[in-house]
Amino acid sequence: MAWTFRFLEEIALADIGFEAEGGSIEEVFRGATQALLESMATPSTVAETWERTIEQSDVDPSALLFDWLSEVVYWKDAAGVVFREAPLTLTHVHDVWLLRARLIGAPVDQQTQELHADVKGVTKHLYQLKQIGDRWKARVVLDV
């Protein structure tokens, strides 16, 4: 696994902040996605009975990550689901970043799933996606 994430204690007093890191921009997307999924439910407790394929693109990878994470939150509410995994690929063609992802999960089930926060959205507070040396870092604060 070429990505990591950690939840931040020093920011977002009332909400959830995390920092994801990866060896590539695609890997940092994966780390940030995993942090978001784990904020809502423990993925291993979620079945694989619901799936959506999502494609998004933007010239700005920072805006793309923001929109992608927001889309995950949207489907949580719109379909009433939590997620097991979200495999994704990121390609850069003609100055446009293209995200292709599968959101995989199951309808919320309080009996079988280990549920956490009902994330309401992704915020721009301290939001950041940047390259430091050969590593990519994202900092995200979720409103809960």
Binding site: A14, D15, Y74, D77, A78, G80, A117, D118, K120, V144
Partner: peptide
Amino acid sequence: DHAIQRGMNQLGTLGSGN
């Protein structure tokens, strides 16, 4: 439409957090 889709099924629910 995104807002409507998110809100339609949530009437009468508490949410989480505080």
